[in-house]
């Protein structure tokens, strides 16, 4: 069943809302995570309970005796945000049924990094999705373990520099390709799955509206440019986000009740070299000696894009 969500985003309406994440948190200047969290929470017109696993957002918003959260918020451990929120959601259903709490709609949202989602928390997330809890899981994907100091994750693009995939004399960065997490989640056949990025704020918030309206789990993988880890100037976060979509490094699409739909097609598609030139973590790829690596990666991105286009065409009218 497709639920008709209130998806129209009204900027004036949103600008008058109180931030559920208060200013004064400790996220870096230019960090996309704070922007994305506010975009997501502004798109939700219900009371929310938020859960974050260990990571940048957690450590920068909840440092005792302070909290930046104006909504109920819990951080349990690194790997288990999905089962923590599953427990909260199960309690909500039980206590509502038994008349122990007021009968009102509450939405449950996880904000987790890519390390917590792609790597250490994958089993917990998969289990919670399979059991069908009603919650929205947002992956704040900055493509590495930024909280511990820029270590590679399985969301890190091949040949990227990180502190555990340094560019050495023998090995030029991360040897392995990234995992297609969004497709893995889509394979759970949950009602709503999407990829988004903060520059396309209307697209992102519309996706949140759709996701929050479904009965069952929903997942949005959101690219979060990281000033420190990606090595760029803090004023460029939104430009970098747009470049990711324009180079097809980060396609914007959704899988809405099984229907794959492309939400943005760059015209023209910009070359991957633009992506590499924009960030210090790729500086080695700009060197002439590594031209072959750039060709390899461009082929890889083109193949992924072509596959996604074909898949979406299958569902087109």
């Amino acid at each position: 069943m497709v639920v008709e969500a209130k998806t129209r985003i009204n900027l004036r309406e949103i600008s008058n809302k109180e931030d559920k994440l208060a200013p004064g948190h400790r996220l870096c200047l230019g960090c996309a995570e704070g922007i994305v969290v506010r975009q997501v929470l502004h798109a939700i017109d219900y009371p929310v309970v938020v859960c974050s696993p260990t990571g940048c957002l957690e450590i920068c918003t909840g440092l005792f005796p302070y909290t930046a959260w104006r909504v109920p918020w819990v951080h349990s451990a690194f790997e288990n945000a999905a089962s923590t929120i599953a427990g909260v959601e199960a309690a909500y259903r039980a206590l509502k049924r038994r008349g122990k709490i007021e009968d009102r709609v509450i939405k449950f949202v996880v904000f987790a990094g890519d390390g917590a989602t792609y790597d250490i928390g994958l089993q917990w997330l998969s289990g919670a999705l399979e059991r069908g809890h009603t919650f929205l899981y947002i992956c704040l994907n900055n493509e590495a373990y930024m909280n511990t100091g820029i270590q590679r994750s399985s969301a890190t693009l091949k040949w990227t520099w990180t502190t555990t995939t340094p560019v050495g004399k023998v090995i030029p960065g991360k040897k392995e390709s990234r995992k297609d997490m969004t497709a893995i989640i889509a394979a759970h056949n949950i009602p709503y799955v999407a990829q988004a990025a903060p520059h396309a704020w209307r697209d992102l918030m519309t996706k949140v509206r759709k996701a929050i309206a479904v009965d069952g789990p929903s997942f949005i993988n959101i690219l979060c440019p990281c000033v420190r880890g990606w090595r760029y100037n803090s004023k460029d976060t939104i430009a970098i986000s747009k470049l990711a979509a324009d180079t097809c490094v980060w396609p914007l699409y959704e899988v809405d009740h099984g229907i794959w739909r492309l939400n943005y097609k760059p015209s023209p598609q910009r070359p991957l070299t633009d992506w590499f030139l924009s960030q210090g973590r790729f500086s080695h790829l700009v060197a002439p000696d590594n031209a072959n690596l750039v060709i390899e990666l461009q082929q890889c991105i083109d193949q992924e894009w072509a596959k996604l286009e074909k898949l979406c065409q299958c569902f087109a009218d």
Binding site: S76, E89, A91, A94, Q123, G127
Partner: peptide, 19 residues
């Protein structure tokens, strides 16, 4: 659930919610 770690994690979430 899919593991004991998830079992206790979910119990913790539930207890935090007052269950």
């Amino acid at each position: 659930v899919e593991s004991e770690h998830a079992a206790l994690s979910a119990c913790i979430g539930a207890a935090l919610a007052g269950a």
